[in-house]
Amino acid sequence: MAGRNVRRAGAAALAALSLAALSACSSGSGSDEGSGDELISVGFSQLGAESGWRTANTESVQASLTEEAGFDLTFVDAQQKQENQIKALRDFIAQDVDVIAFSPVIETGWDEVIEEIKDAEIPLVLVDRTVDTTVEDPYVTWIGADFKQEGITAGEWVKENAPDAKIFELQGTMGSGAQVDREEGFDSVVGEENIVGKASGNFTRAEGKAAVEAALQAYPETNLIFAHNDDMGLGAIEAIEAAGKVPGVDIKIVTIDGVHDGLQALLDGKFNYVVECNPVFGDQIADAIKKVYAGEELPKETIVVDQAFESITQEELDARLY
């Protein structure tokens, strides 16, 4: 049993890590010459389904890692519990899959299981979120969105199209990665002096609406709202309309996410600019896993390509997966 394991793991590890010392094992396995007929077995542990974004991400992964595309996918949903995820990862090790991919539910507490994955010489691909670990060289590559870049993209549009805007910034849940990075990126481009006020709407419609109701009173000069996600922007629309103003005209709205309702608002002219935080990057994950399996060099980080929309048509909106 040990021999077989060493050979298979060796093939995968060779492919992934290009360890010259193990080259002797590869000649017999034959699995490192592209995908061929043999499927790449992938263990994917998703953290759960906490938002519409995550659901779209899951669907995209499942749609991309199919048998036709050359994958044998074992997908396990962790229901937002770390113990579930660790258990799934150990199962993947026991099944001796070729590549393990996962979105960690939290950053810490992975040292032991990542060490076990390393010992089993299975390459690890991180998706969307990262880990904080003492293990050296814990993963081959990370694929995810760059929140700061999304903020910068939104800021650049504002700088170009509304350079003198009096901006009210609607922050996400304080301390979350998306809030901190999007704010940092946006503020660095538009400059603090153009931002008249900030308040948190906790990424939700109801609280975004409440915050904007108060902001219209507290900062009457506001003529542009930057919301850290679509939902808060949708809440802002309701508050602005209730105040007898026209969203998108009297007060411009710039948001990040690009969920269906947000793009619908863009279509209706109530949003002015939407930076997408694209969850549909299953194809990029599939691509990376193939490269990892084939032993190609990969950058440590792969940033998912985000689009940004100034306008959208009904057809484009209907064609979107989420």
Binding site: M174, G197, K198, A199, S200, E213, A214, A215, A218
Partner: peptide, 12 residues
């Protein structure tokens, strides 16, 4: 909750 925004108090 509303006064926080009216008084321009930073979210932090």
């Amino acid at each position: 909750e509303r006064a926080v925004i009216i008084f321009h108090i930073p979210s932090q």
